[in-house]
């Protein structure tokens, strides 16, 4: 199903989904979110989508540190003597 831009089809979903995915909810709030996910098919679908998207963004955005930079950083250490 599709929804109009700017219209939240499930207010409950939006209130809980983002902090739930971010692991920012207390135990009772998390239980509330999970109870809602059990009964709301749309939120479950959104949850899986958002989770995959975040995982992909995290993996895609990672660029490893150039090997020589670590040596340059180590060169900034204070000499012992």
């Amino acid at each position: 199903m599709s929804f109009s831009p700017g219209v939240d089809p499930c207010e409950e979903c939006e209130k809980l989904l983002q902090p739930y995915l971010d692991k920012q909810l207390s135990d009772s709030e998390r239980a509330e979110a999970e109870s809602h996910l059990e009964v709301c098919a749309y939120c479950r679908k959104r949850y899986v989508f958002e989770e995959k998207l975040r995982m992909f963004v995290r993996q895609a955005a990672v660029e490893e540190m150039p090997p020589d930079l670590k040596q340059k950083l180590a060169g900034l250490r204070t000499p012992l003597f």
Partner: peptide
């Protein structure tokens, strides 16, 4: 910003690619 949280989700559906 006019688009809501469902923008990407909806756009993917509109392009014939069912999310999830």
């Amino acid at each position: 910003l006019e688009e809501g949280d469902y923008y990407l989700y909806n756009r993917l559906e509109e392009t014939g690619r069912e999310p999830n």
